[in-house]
């Protein structure tokens, strides 16, 4: 068991490297067939043709594609993600700047999804096929069924602009001095610094974007909670508990829920990667300084090293979450074959 788990882990790690390598290759190929010119995107349309060619040479975009890719890989092995064409800074620097805000947003969104999704899922399972079930599902699925940008603009328009209940876009109000930069996640930084005013402001700014992004994932969480709860409730020990004359509510909360939540939480872990890429629209509307906006900006400007950096990071995050989930499952359920 010990031995095979170790071998399993090694194999999975090797596969992850392979997958990440494949992702960079696909991205590289994609960015070079995009019918736009990164140099013109950078210099602007007024730049004379001679300047465009000169800069193309300076960036090295006039070299043969295989050479460019091999050079990229060589740098990558040294931990160098290259220099962004647009802002002339190391891509790793940019990622370090934009990633924390997205992690902060996605984590908060996950909390929202669990807070709304798990209770609705329980209600839904308890009252299967009766009206509370229908209502809970329609409520949870409602968030999954509206375009994110519409919900975001509507909520901003009503709760921020019309009534002023919640703050506007960004991570902090303009007159709130930002806490010292530590992790890049403003709420965490404020907490560490003991700056309660900044913490309060940061949390209030998180409410709307986290809700918009989290509500979008609620449908999935509800559905998972509902179905795994229903499945667990058919199992013997639950039946035994029920037969012993325990109240239905107690059966569910005491016995079934605990076991039903495990698969739910795993699914949630897997959707974290989706949240990262789903944050593009939310970040655009809430002026959230995260990786989603950086990604969109890089794709529209055909900033090859930046796009490569973003997909690389996303692929690594996805693979790691996947790996962790699988290992946890394997640990919990020895019947799973290591394949």
């Amino acid at each position: 068991m010990e031995m095979s788990l170790a071998r399993y882990l090694a194999r999975r790690a090797a596969l992850t490297v392979f997958v990440v390598f494949g992702v960079t290759l696909i991205t590289f190929a994609l960015t070079h067939v995009v019918p736009a010119d990164p140099v013109v995107a950078y210099l602007g349309d007024h730049a004379p043709p001679e300047l465009v060619e000169k800069v193309r040479h300076q960036i090295g975009l006039d070299r043969p594609l295989p050479v460019q890719y091999l050079l990229y890989l060589r740098d990558l092995l040294r931990g160098d993600l290259g220099i962004s064409i647009m802002d002339n800074r190391p891509v790793s620097h940019d990622l370090g700047q934009y990633l924390p805000a997205t992690v902060e947003l996605a984590t908060s969104a996950m909390v929202v999804a669990i807070l709304i999704g798990v209770p609705t899922g329980i209600v839904s399972a308890l009252y299967k096929d009766s009206w509370p079930d229908q209502a809970a599902r329609v409520f949870a699925l409602g968030g999954t069924s509206l375009p994110v940008f519409y919900v975001a603009l509507l909520l901003l328009g009503v709760l921020y602009s019309r009534f002023g209940v919640l703050p506007g876009p960004g991570q902090l109000s303009i007159y709130t001095p930002p806490p010292p930069h530590l992790t890049g996640m403003v709420a965490v930084d404020a907490l560490v610094a003991g700056d309660w005013a900044a913490l309060g402001d940061a949390l209030r700014h998180l409410v709307l974007p986290a809700f918009v992004l989290g509500y979008f994932s609620t449908g999935l969480v509800t559905r998972m909670t509902r179905s795994s709860l229903l499945e667990v409730m058919r199992q013997d020990y639950v039946r035994t508990a029920r037969a012993k004359g325990m109240g239905e509510r107690r059966v569910v909360l005491r016995h079934a829920l605990r076991n039903a939540l495990l698969p739910t939480v795993t699914v949630i872990g897997l959707t974290f990667g989706d949240l990262l890429s789903g944050s593009v629209l939310t970040e655009t509307i809430f002026s959230w300084p995260g990786i989603g906006r950086y990604a969109t900006n890089s794709v529209t400007n055909v900033d090859v090293p930046a796009v490569l950096g973003v997909t690389l990071v996303a692929a690594v995050i996805y693979s790691v979450f996947n790996l962790v989930t699988d290992v946890v499952y394997a640990y919990l359920d020895p019947q799973i074959r290591y394949t």
């Binding site: 603009l153 901003l156 921020y160 602009s161 876009p169 655009t284 509307i285 002026s287």
Partner: peptide, 20 residues
């Protein structure tokens, strides 16, 4: 002088209405 980057003009208008 501060220029926050607000890509959506609807949000720009919200900020103006709010006094932000």
């Amino acid at each position: 002088i501060i220029w926050p980057n607000i890509m959506e003009n609807t949000v720009q208008r919200n900020m103006l209405t709010r006094g932000d």
